[in-house]
Design a protein around this nucleic acid. Structure first.
Length: 153
DNA sequence: GCCAACGTTGGC
DNA sequence: GCCAACGTTGGC
């Protein structure tokens, strides 16, 4: 079992939006090769933090579970889609997505400021200067620590 | 709105 | 293959 982190701007898609769906959702629209490769490395049962970015209080707000392993992200083929990529074809869709299911929403989100203040987390890629990847790996130690900060047993 | 950092593009 | 220009991300 491995651990990950997904970033999302809550104004576009928040954890509550996922909760409201009441079913797993494809994590589509990722158009960065490194982020795509992380998704391709995900296995069913893996857990991931849901992180809210570009908002008043950036924070880890909860958890999701990978419930379907990577498959082609066909939104890249749709010219009307915001994430359309003219290089993608049916034979070579280029981009991948996974399905995620809601698992938990923290009563107390772990803010970016709290993450930065925790010495054990200084190595997290999320906290690295200039980091822009929307999908990131998380170590089991980091997973445990952040869950602790959220007050989750 | 500003700015730093990064990925991508395109001219050469 | 180099590198400048540009667009995007994301914190503040």
């Amino acid at each position: 079992m491995r651990y990950w982190l997904f970033k999302s701007e809550p104004a576009s898609f928040s954890l509550d939006d996922l909760v409201k769906k009441g079913r797993p959702e494809p994590w589509d629209g990722v158009r960065n090769f490194q982020a795509r490769n992380f998704m391709r490395a995900m296995a069913c049962g893996d857990r991931a933090f849901f992180y809210h970015s570009s908002c008043p209080v950036p924070a880890v707000v909860g958890e999701v579970e990978i419930v379907r392993e990577h498959y082609p992200d066909l939104t890249a083929l749709d010219p009307d889609n915001h994430h359309y990529d003219s290089r993608a074809t049916a034979d070579n869709p280029i981009w991948s997505m996974v399905d995620v299911a809601f698992r938990e929403r923290y009563k107390k989100p772990v803010t970016l400021a709290e993450l930065k203040a925790c010495p054990a987390l200084v190595g997290m890629p999320l906290l690295a200067r200039g980091n822009r990847l929307s999908v990131l790996p998380v170590t089991s130690d980091e997973w445990r620590i952040i869950r602790g900060l959220a007050g989750t047993p």
